[in-house]
Computed example of a mutant assay.
Amino acid sequence: MRVVMAPDSFKGTASAADVAEAVADGWRSERPDDDLVLLPMADGGEGTLDAVARAVPGSERVPVTVTGPDDRPVETAWLRLPDGRALVELAATSGLTLLDDLRPDTAHTTGFGQAIAAALDAGATGLLLGIGGSASTDGGVGALQALGLALGTAVPTGVTGGEVLDHVPPVDATALRPLPPLGAVVLSDVTSPLLGEHGAAAVFGPQKGVTPDRTAVHEDRLRRWAACFPDVDPTAAGAGAAGGTGFGLLAWGARIASGAATIADAIGLSAAVAGADLVVTGEGRFDAQSAEGKAPAVVRALAAGLGTPVAVVAGALAAPLDGFTLAASLTVIATQITGEPDDALRDPLRFARIAGARFARAQDA
């Protein structure tokens, strides 16, 4: 058999590449002669750069030092693709995992903008911008300032992040860097608008430390930010992604696309699936949100269109499994093996190997 391993990361516990390797190891223990193709997936969040770097021959990591979301320097990299485009990952420059403590008012996206500027300085002909995993609710103002945006009013020294939005409008975009020739594509699996009950502050603010009594403050800041760009629609799908960074990038002239679908195209997943007998995908938790453009849903749809069976492995399965021929929950496997469901969080790769072995045995049933 030819089997494609295309899981997303198990957020907070295992990278997509590690999960793909673990499932493959389990499969080989039962069917060592099968041809396994490892194409770890991503949707624009943490691990996107790693997934593309692994899957695209000739891609090159370019080191860069940026200002992290709490002002500490971050040693990171952007990815130069063989076609001249650059991939920049917000999670690696301005991400939540870079904070020791949540900073709901002052965390910022400056480092993300600095990395984008570095890629442009190096001659990037186009940009792929993964914006999952943001630490801030600054509307992307930090990133745009790093790209040349000026504020029309003086901002007190030391004010960063969402607090900057207390000092807008107006803004001066005349010095904002132009888009590269091939433009900028924002990779996101989030369809939220900028404002309202489904917007950046209400839905994603809490994970960044915004308490209920402060939600209205952040909402008002983002509304002021939206007023700076009257020609940009704050209700656009994805404008609320990454604490409103989606909106900021739309204001720059970027367009938003499905992160998982764009990454699938970049790594050549369609061709691999077309030549496979089975595809294995997955993520940390497969739930109702998974159907809204996340990697497993994109892989499932791609496989269905090509007539290739698809299996899913997840830390937990909490949604209907329509369209999957096989499924494995690491929590269930851990409960069966050790009696402790939390072992799936402590050692997910152990149970991913078991899932891979079970999938392989099912081929001989």
Rank of each mutant, 00 (worst) to 15 (best):
D101Y: 12
D101H: 15
L102W: 00
L102N: 10
P104S: 11
T106A: 14
T106E: 14
T106Q: 13
A107K: 00
A107M: 07
H108P: 02
T109R: 02
T109A: 06
T109P: 03
T110A: 08
T110H: 13
T110K: 00
G111Y: 09
G113W: 00
G113T: 07
Q114V: 10
A115V: 04
I116Q: 02
A117S: 14
A117I: 04
A118Y: 11
A119K: 04
A119Q: 06
A119Y: 04
A119E: 01
L120A: 04
L120E: 00
L120I: 08
D121E: 15
D121S: 12
A122V: 08
A122Q: 14
A124T: 06
T125C: 05
T125N: 00
T125I: 06
G126H: 08
G126T: 12
G126Y: 08
L127Q: 13
L127R: 14
L128Q: 11
L128D: 14
L128I: 03
L129M: 14
G130N: 13
I131H: 12
I131N: 10
I131S: 13
I131T: 07
G132D: 13
G132M: 11
G133T: 13
G133F: 09
S134P: 09
S134T: 12
A135K: 11
S136N: 08
S136Y: 03
T137Y: 01
T137D: 14
D138M: 05
D138R: 03
G139F: 06
G140M: 07
G140T: 08
G140V: 05
G140N: 05
V141A: 08
G142F: 03
G142K: 04
G142S: 05
G142V: 03
G142E: 02
G142P: 05
A143C: 13
L144E: 01
L144I: 02
Q145H: 01
A146N: 03
A146P: 03
A146G: 05
A146K: 05
A146R: 10
L147R: 10
L147N: 08
L147Q: 08
G148K: 10
G148Y: 01
L149Y: 09
A150Q: 14
